[in-house]
Design a protein around this nucleic acid. Structure first.
Length: 494
RNA sequence: GCCCUCAUCGUCUAACGGCUAGGACACCACUCUUUCAAGGUGGCGGUCGGGGUUCGAUUCCCCGUGAGGGCGCCA
């Protein structure tokens, strides 16, 4: 099987485009076929090299590699034009001398005149005297060339939707060569697909009405007609085609938080289902199980929550070494310190990652959490402070006691736990009364892994430093971003 | 206006014409726990409407309704 992905570089790699690429790629990989990448850059004004680069990088990130290409449609305009001339010579097309005003009028009438407007250009051409078109063309008068849509109907067996039929009278006599002689999209696609020997065209539903045109063009050109399949579009929350106003549609915007395998998994499940309840899948499993027959016929809504969940699942099960290699470059600024820590204590780093990833859904957030265990200033989350450092005098007392107790403790989780718990017993308070303020002191947050794991991974020096720093902060009354309110509350309570 | 496609919990989805319409995300409880997450248990919640065909319809047919896509000398 030979399939292709043919984006136009007038924008970045769109989520919907990524899914189309993925489905084609899956087809190629599972059938031992060939995946061809073609950049449709014939709109010179709107295409850019930067966008081509963005598309290639997006595909690479997802792990979608191509066997042939990237080819550029603009490299073959000569062939496309020749195809157009051949159609004209063979009587499958005609010269259209319509003025812009006439075309505008046709367009305006399209609602009023039912289907009749689509043949307006043809009728004007037919009204010309015999030989007139050739004379005017020979005289150099600019004109477009339109495909002469034949009578009858155009049928195909859609790989997704099943039997499909368009009445040809509903199909426009589409322009194949513009007045400047340049070929248009449908002609170029037909020529290029045939040239690349594409035998299966799987693309978005938005191309459904192009398909009969392309079939007709291919037949008129004597080219083989590929199979076609049309995948429903990806929708936004409001049920409309996914666009910028629904949030991020550029695949690149997800690189910050999302694992490529999670994105691929998510995209595969959008409009396709393996048929059972399996949801979290690796690439090889998706390749193995993918099937055109199980592609849904309706559009599906992009659910960012489910993507985040899926990302969390992949974060939790992926190879730890690879996770490390993704997280390390994202660590907060003192990168030498981070690099050193990672290099000198690989076991420590892996354990820490393992500890933190079970509650992570985003790569970036995970990296921010990892950073807390490296030397550096931490910020106290206002919410955590409000909740666990409310009674300042008592918190200071507890932290001082903890500081003394932990200082002479062996730095392993069990001894640390014994020490803290016996201190709690000594003070006659529940362990939680010590643990929560301590967590804020150590991480600045109200949530973290188990406190003894936190202490252990922070290490003695950093832990004690953080407690000292917390005591200073408490003493200075700088425990909130709204110090006035906090101070008032604190003094009122004491 | 014309053409095309589609319709199962809020969302992603499963169900040879035949078990009480199943699972997942989200949400809500409970559980575990020093917190959060993860895990476990439970709950909420759906076949667009109307006609047929059939012993039996989410499934097949027709008609509505609704939604989406297309109707460029863009791709």
């Amino acid at each position: 099987m030979r399939v292709r992905f043919a984006p136009s570089p007038t924008g970045f790699l769109h989520v919907g485009g990524a899914r189309t690429a993925l489905f084609n790629w899956l087809l190629a990989r599972q059938s031992g076929g060939t995946f061809v990448l073609r950049i449709e850059d014939t709109d010179r004004a709107r295409s850019s090299e930067a966008m081509t680069g963005a598309i290639l990088r997006g595909l690479e990130w997802l792990g979608i590699d191509w066997d042939e290409g990237p080819f550029f449609q603009s490299d073959r305009v000569g062939e496309h034009t020749a195809g157009g001339r051949k159609l004209l010579a063979g009587g499958h097309a005609y010269r259209d001398f319509s003025t812009p005003e006439e075309l505008a009028r046709d367009r305006a009438n399209i609602a009023a005149l039912a289907g009749e407007a689509t043949r307006a250009a043809r009728r004007r051409a037919e009204a010309l005297a015999p030989g007139e078109a050739e004379e005017r063309a020979a005289a150099g008068e600019p004109h477009a060339v339109r495909f002469l849509v034949p009578e009858g109907s155009t049928d195909w067996e859609d790989a997704v939707h099943g039997p499909m039929r368009f009445r040809n009278r509903d199909i426009d006599d589409l322009v194949i060569l513009r007045a400047d002689g340049s070929p248009t999209y449908n002609l170029a696609v037909v020529c290029d697909d045939a040239h690349a020997r594409i035998d299966m065209v799987l693309r978005g539903d938005d191309h459904l009405s192009n398909t009969p045109k392309q079939i007709l063009l291919a037949r008129a050109l004597g080219l083989p007609v590929p199979r076609f399949g049309h995948v429903p579009l990806i929708l936004g929350r409001d049920g409309k085609r996914l666009s910028k106003r629904h949030g991020a549609t550029d695949i690149a915007e997800y690189r910050r938080d999302i694992l490529p395998e999670a994105m691929v998994n998510f995209l595969a499940l959008l409009g396709w289902s393996p048929g059972d309840d399996r949801e979290v899948m690796e690439l090889d499993e998706i390749v193995r199980r993918f099937s055109l027959k199980r592609i849904l016929h309706k559009g599906s809504v992009f659910d960012a929550d489910k993507l985040a969940w899926l990302n969390g699942r992949h974060l939790s099960r992926m190879d730890l070494a690879r996770l490390g290699s993704l997280v390390t470059p994202r660590l907060a600024e003192p990168s030498q310190a981070a690099d050193a820590a990672v290099k000198d204590r690989p076991g420590w780093y892996d354990n820490l990652l393992d500890l933190l990833r079970t509650r992570a859904r985003s790569l970036d957030a995970l990296a921010r959490n990892v950073s807390l265990y490296l030397p550096g200033e931490i910020a106290y989350e206002p919410k955590a402070v409000r909740k666990h450092w409310k009674r300042r005098a008592q918190v200071e007392e507890y932290l001082n006691a903890l500081r003394r107790t932990l200082d002479c403790c062996e730095w392993q989780t069990e001894p640390l736990e014994r020490a803290l718990r016996s201190l709690a017993a000594e003070l006659g308070v529940a362990a939680g009364r010590l643990i929560h303020p301590l967590r804020v002191a150590l991480t600045g947050q109200a949530v973290s892994p188990g406190i003894f794991d936190v202490l252990y991974h922070l290490g003695r020096d950093l832990s004690l430093d953080r407690i000292d720093r917390a005591l200073e902060t408490l003493a200075a009354g700088e425990t909130d971003s709204a110090p006035a309110a906090q101070a008032a509350a604190a003094s009122g309570g004491g």
